[in-house]
């Protein structure tokens, strides 16, 4: 059956898979950081990603700030929105069952998406690519911008991983993940650290949104479909595992691309099939260590 599948198609889909995987990795990374430290399943992650794209669009259209500026400003703006959300709706729920914070972020999605649709309508809005043109790789035409997305998101993922694994701040985060009250007894303002961690994870989602704006249409619902895929990625990678989230993100993107080549009808299903198999074989996630399981 492989005879009629050209190498061009295969490589092309692999590349598309890699680009999608870049978004999956960046978003699930933020979700895993948030879950790991404050045990909030941030259902609003997709909506915050969407806000990142809209902030970039508004910066461009109303203030004339180009993409490269938005790349820095939008994550900060979205992160600040995240900080406000944490203080108002998540902090009061901190000592309750984690299901409540999940539901609170879900309710926030209804409000955020509703307001955005009210203001901007449901149709997608275009955002011009800051890097027009591309290069012919022989097997496919690679737009410069997509290449930039792959490289940049990889850098962001690695930098974030290094931040958490190799720095002092990272060791505070890891320790607070295990025993927040002990870390606080060392004189560290853990409640503030939790709020800022949420803001950071949300900022990553916003950054993902800026990256996505020139590729996908900017629309209020652009995050909601992605959200469920991201959830699956985090489940497969092991809840709260940073490295697991990054690797699974890329893996899922690539597998999705390959399914499009060999069995296009099933490309939407592939992720969930992988998730179910992974749950049966490795219930704690592909990349979880025995100690991080709960």
């Amino acid at each position: 059956m492989f005879d009629h599948i050209s190498i061009q198609l295969l490589l092309g889909q692999l590349l598309i898979g890699l680009i999608n995987g870049s978004f999956y990795a960046m978003l699930s990374l933020g979700l895993a950081i948030i879950f790991g430290l404050i045990h909030v399943v941030n259902f609003a992650h997709g909506a915050q990603y969407m806000l990142g794209a809209f902030v970039a669009l508004l910066l461009l259209n109303h203030l004339g700030i180009p993409y490269w500026g938005a790349l820095f400003i939008a994550p900060v703006v979205v992160g600040a929105i995240g900080y406000a959300m944490e203080r108002t709706i998540l902090k009061p729920l901190r000592n309750l069952d984690h299901l409540y914070s999940l539901l609170a972020t879900f309710a926030a999605v209804l409000i955020i998406e509703g307001l955005m649709r009210l203001e901007f309508g449901s149709t997608g809005l275009p955002y011009a690519s800051p890097l027009p043109g591309g290069i012919n790789l022989g097997f496919m035409f690679l737009p410069w911008y997509r290449g930039w997305v792959v490289v940049f998101s990889l850098v962001v993922c690695i930098a974030t991983w290094l931040l958490i694994e190799k720095t002092k701040l990272g060791s505070y985060l890891r320790a607070a993940n295990e025993r927040p009250e002990i870390v606080e007894s060392f004189g560290i303002n853990v409640p503030l650290m939790m709020s800022l961690t949420y803001a950071f994870g949300v900022g990553l989602a916003g950054l993902g949104g800026v990256l996505a704006a020139p590729i996908y249409q900017v629309s209020p619902s652009m995050g909601s479909n992605l959200m469920i895929v991201i959830f699956a990625v985090v489940v497969i990678g092991g809840m709260g595992s940073i490295l697991g989230a990054i690797l699974t993100g890329y893996l899922i993107g690539i597998v999705e691309g390959l399914t499009k080549v060999f069995y296009p009808e099933a490309s939407n299903l592939a992720i969930f099939v992988i998730m179910i198999i992974a749950l049966i074989l490795r219930p704690n996630g592909l990349f979880s260590s025995p100690e991080s399981s709960r």
Binding site: L102, F231, M239
Partner: peptide
């Protein structure tokens, strides 16, 4: 059988993903 071993949050996420799986399955 797939999800009951996991408690709380994980159960929520797994059932969400399975429902999405069934959604796409029925779409096809």
């Amino acid at each position: 059988l797939i999800s009951a071993r996991r408690g709380g949050i994980q159960f929520a996420m797994i059932t969400l993903a399975i429902s999405q799986f069934i959604y796409f399955l029925l779409l096809r």
